[in-house]
Computed example of a mutant assay.
Amino acid sequence: MRIVMAGASGFLGTRLADRLRQSGHDVHRLVRQPATWDPGQGRLDPDALAGADAVVNLAGANIGAQRWTANYKRVLRSSRVNTTDTIARTIARLPAADRPRTLLQASAVGWYGDTGDQEVTEEAPAGSTFLADLCRVWEAAARPAEDAGTRVVLLRTAPVLDRTGAPLKPLLPLFKLGGGARLGSGRQWMAWIALGDWLGATEFLLDREDLAGPVNLVSAEQCTNAAFTRTLAAAVHRPALLSVPGPVLDLALGELGGELRHSQRAVPGVLRDAGFSWAYPDIASALQAALRPEPAIGR
């Protein structure tokens, strides 16, 4: 399969490209060049996508890279929406014979906002938080490709667990020093997925031409922040007796701190019904895989 990938140099894109090449696919990186690929200007040479079997769009600025100032919120939005809109409209303008059959489009479980203790599947409406609104316009930007007949899969991804990327990379030094702490009460539900399962699920969705629309890329089992904190501390053989009060989290991280205290009990309805099998379904096995010396690329 010939696959064109945007965001191929990021944490997930690099590993997915490696995984797909290992599976025998021909993966081409979509590299930004002012004359041919400039999503800020809505410019993409149609020849870059023509004849591809699938397009994978993982592009977007890092959610946790800095405080959410008004300016950085605009960056988070434009880096996702402009890229997606440019790719989707370019796909739609291609002749049917040259049009990619599939677009795997990044999104996030932030779509659901704060769900409390309620389990939410892909059928749940968008929440009312900044991230929920961001996901709503992000996903909507892919609609021109869908309207043109391309199968669009919206990858509502949870935080992906691996020692080389967020959220684990910045947490591990603290936990190894015994400074691991739950956030607020710790009773809030966390959405997460092991890196190996994210890669496996994405390749699974690439091959399953009968699946389209939003798909929750989350673990088979959910856990609370307190359970995550306790399990990570045990994995590095350190105590985790502390908690970070909400006001302190807000002072340190601003609006992002509030998002981290939201409860999100997203469940993988589509993947489960489609027969996907998780290699790391629970938080203990996922953290064991994530802390191995080499990234868990295979399943």
Rank of each mutant, 00 (worst) to 15 (best):
185 S>I: 10
157 T>F: 02
172 L>W: 06
167 P>G: 12
179 G>Q: 13
176 K>T: 14
160 V>D: 11
164 T>R: 14
177 L>I: 07
175 F>K: 08
169 K>G: 03
161 L>K: 07
182 R>H: 09
160 V>Q: 09
176 K>F: 09
168 L>H: 02
182 R>Y: 12
165 G>F: 04
184 G>A: 10
179 G>N: 07
154 L>T: 07
174 L>G: 13
166 A>K: 06
171 L>C: 02
174 L>A: 15
185 S>D: 13
156 R>H: 07
151 R>N: 11
170 P>M: 00
169 K>S: 12
159 P>V: 13
176 K>N: 12
166 A>S: 15
185 S>F: 10
162 D>W: 02
174 L>N: 00
175 F>M: 05
179 G>C: 14
185 S>L: 09
171 L>V: 04
160 V>H: 09
155 L>E: 00
179 G>H: 08
162 D>P: 03
176 K>S: 14
158 A>S: 15
159 P>A: 14
152 V>R: 14
174 L>V: 07
152 V>C: 11
183 L>A: 12
153 V>S: 06
166 A>H: 07
173 P>H: 03
164 T>D: 14
178 G>N: 13
171 L>F: 03
174 L>Q: 13
178 G>H: 11
156 R>K: 08
171 L>M: 15
167 P>C: 06
186 G>E: 05
166 A>P: 11
184 G>V: 08
173 P>T: 01
156 R>Y: 12
173 P>E: 00
183 L>Y: 08
178 G>C: 11
155 L>S: 00
185 S>R: 14
168 L>K: 01
161 L>N: 04
158 A>G: 12
170 P>N: 06
160 V>I: 15
184 G>K: 11
181 A>G: 13
175 F>W: 12
183 L>I: 13
157 T>C: 07
158 A>T: 06
168 L>Q: 02
166 A>M: 03
156 R>G: 00
185 S>Q: 08
177 L>P: 06
180 G>K: 04
174 L>M: 14
180 G>I: 11
160 V>R: 10
163 R>L: 13
186 G>T: 08
162 D>S: 15
171 L>N: 00
182 R>I: 06
180 G>P: 04
178 G>E: 12
182 R>M: 11
173 P>L: 03
171 L>W: 02
155 L>G: 00
182 R>A: 05
163 R>A: 15
160 V>M: 04
169 K>P: 03
171 L>Y: 04
159 P>L: 14
176 K>I: 10
152 V>N: 13
165 G>S: 08
186 G>P: 05
164 T>V: 13
173 P>A: 03
174 L>K: 08
175 F>I: 01
156 R>S: 03
155 L>C: 07
178 G>T: 13
170 P>G: 04
151 R>G: 09
161 L>Q: 09
185 S>Y: 10
182 R>Q: 15
177 L>S: 15
181 A>Y: 04
183 L>Q: 09
164 T>P: 01
158 A>Y: 07
157 T>G: 08
180 G>T: 07
155 L>Y: 04
182 R>N: 05
154 L>V: 08
173 P>F: 02
169 K>N: 01
168 L>W: 07
174 L>Y: 06
166 A>R: 04
173 P>V: 03
164 T>W: 01
165 G>Q: 15
177 L>V: 10
175 F>C: 03
